[in-house]
Design a protein around this nucleic acid. Structure first.
Length: 485
DNA sequence: TTTTGAGTTGTTCGA
DNA sequence: GTCGAACAACTCAAA
């Protein structure tokens, strides 16, 4: 008698290669029923943002194509995950439900309940690790607690083995006699009604093949110079792999293997200083999941409790926040970043730090506003990384930036976008300004502005805050937080 | 237990 | 123009 069908519940693991749950489902020897469930209510306070939904749409489309090449196809459903799975078990006669784990607190609780219910109903319900080199519950410091400082965390992780990616064999798996009903992809309603996504398709190729291609290109062309070029926003110097990693179209083990493959010739690992820095960024992704798992309140609450009573500034009518969101702060590097984000669903890492520091320190608006905006606009929005990044910037998180670290937007522009090409690309109204004035147009002589066709206050805003005074009041406010017991 | 060393990404000031 | 110090203690990790 052939094995009963297995349901493979796809979530943030939208790939066929190196997918432990899928391999386990295939290994049972029966039909595999791959399903994706859009469960908006199940995401709790963090339903997917608009940019992520765009990515997901195309990732599902790609996954379905890949499955069809194997004579299968992706079943799409919408609604409560547990209910959909139970329906699907009834419709297919499945004996097993397998999936890969996620680490958001709401999802952990939901999945635990689903596993218990399926198990009680006599099903083989199993979950696997596909998203991390090391899952949070497997890592502890010598005192048995979670790490809260990155360097010792990562040093510890570097002593642990990293398994090689697992290959899925070429063959098709047995077909189901009766195919379960599936929604059409369009019925999930993931694409925006208002066409703000025009620029996305030019930049991104969601899907497993796009991920593999990008990884290969990065490893070959940019990784060894990463230590330096990763900070230059007008260059293709970062990996750009974050959205694929978030949706699991790529696994960190595959990334690790690609780096290791470049060590073959020399025998030295990591193969270059750039590669070492790059791997530590993978480490930050791991650390973010570690922290989210052990401190599940941090998407909403500061890790350092004293920050709960920090005096964030008033923003009547939300004018400052809106100027920041729309890239109308009057600081070119900040505005370039915010517009790159809006147009492409992504922002260069260096510029993320600059705009985050600007929101939190210059405007003194709560990091939660920034986290919410990034959540909605980033294609790589990830609850763990987003939370860590914003709390780090605000100084209220683990291993956080010291309060006196206030990024100077002009200086950052001059240092990392020296010739101004990044600003020219995303703030076209300043494109004709010479490099020496492009990061501080308000300091440019009248004739230079006129020659570049820039009327400050009309074509491009005056700075909404003065750097020196904003810096001074930020330092005072953050210092006061430490002074009061 | 106590001690020690160390800690992603910066800016400004003054010598 | 360049360089080092100050910013401010504090917490964490490990010996």
């Amino acid at each position: 008698m052939p094995a009963s069908p297995a349901i493979l519940w796809f979530r943030q693991d939208l790939r066929l290669q190196d997918n432990p749950a899928l391999l386990a489902a295939v290994a049972r020897g029966g039909a595999v029923v791959p399903v994706y469930i859009l469960d908006e209510a199940g995401e709790g306070r963090w339903p997917m943002g608009g940019a992520s939904r765009w990515w997901l749409h195309h990732a599902l489309s790609s996954l379905d194509r890949d499955l069809r090449e194997r004579g299968s196809r992706l079943v799409l459903a919408r609604g409560n995950s547990g209910e959909v799975l139970k329906d699907l078990v009834r419709a297919t006669g499945a004996g097993a439900v397998y999936w890969n784990r996620r680490y958001e607190p709401t999802i952990i609780a939901r999945d635990k309940a689903i596993k218990a219910e399926l198990t009680a109903a006599g099903l083989d319900a199993k979950s696997f690790n596909s998203a991390l080199l090391n899952e949070p519950h497997t890592i502890a410091n010598k005192a048995g607690g979670p790490f809260q400082v990155f360097t010792p965390y990562w040093r510890h992780c570097l002593t642990l083995p990293v398994a090689a990616p697992e290959k899925l064999g070429a063959g098709a798996w047995p077909a189901l006699e009766k195919c379960p009903r599936s929604l059409e992809l369009a019925e999930l309603g993931l694409l925006p009604r208002i066409k703000w996504d025009a620029g996305f398709g030019e930049v991104w190729t969601p899907g497993e093949a796009g991920a593999a291609k990008r990884l290969k290109l990065f490893a070959a062309q940019a990784m060894d110079a990463y230590a330096d070029t990763r900070n230059l926003p007008d260059r293709d110097g970062t990996s750009l792999l974050s959205p694929w990693l978030h949706f699991g179209e790529l696994s960190p083990r595959q990334v690790w293997a690609a780096v290791a493959a470049r060590s073959k010739a020399s025998g030295v690992f990591p193969p270059s200083n750039g590669a070492r820095f790059f791997l530590s960024e993978v480490g930050w992704r791991e650390f973010a999941h570690h922290l989210l798992y052990h401190f599940p309140h941090t998407p909403e609450q500061p890790l350092r409790e004293e920050f709960a009573r920090f005096a964030w500034a008033e923003d009547r009518g939300g004018a400052k926040l809106a100027a920041w969101q729309r890239g109308r702060t009057g600081y070119p590097i900040v505005d370039a970043g915010m517009r790159q984000l809006w147009n492409t669903g992504w922002m260069h890492n260096r510029v993320r730090m600059v705009v985050a520091s600007f929101l939190v320190k210059h405007l003194r608006l709560s990091w939660t506003h920034g986290a919410a905006w990034f959540w909605d606009t980033l294609v790589d929005a990830d609850l763990a990384s987003n939370t860590l990044g914003w709390q780090w910037s605000a100084g209220c998180g683990a291993d956080a930036a010291p309060y006196f670290r206030v990024f100077a937007p002009v200086l950052q522009g001059v240092k990392f976008d020296t010739n101004g090409d990044y600003v020219r690309r995303w703030v076209p109204e300043l494109a004709r300004l010479p490099a020496e004035h492009i990061h501080a147009p308000w300091e440019a002589p009248m004739h230079v502005l006129a020659a570049a066709g820039v009327r400050l206050g009309a074509d491009y805003p005056h700075p909404i805050v003065d750097h020196a005074s904003a810096r001074a009041s930020a330092l005072a406010a953050f210092k006061q937080l430490r002074a009061t017991p």
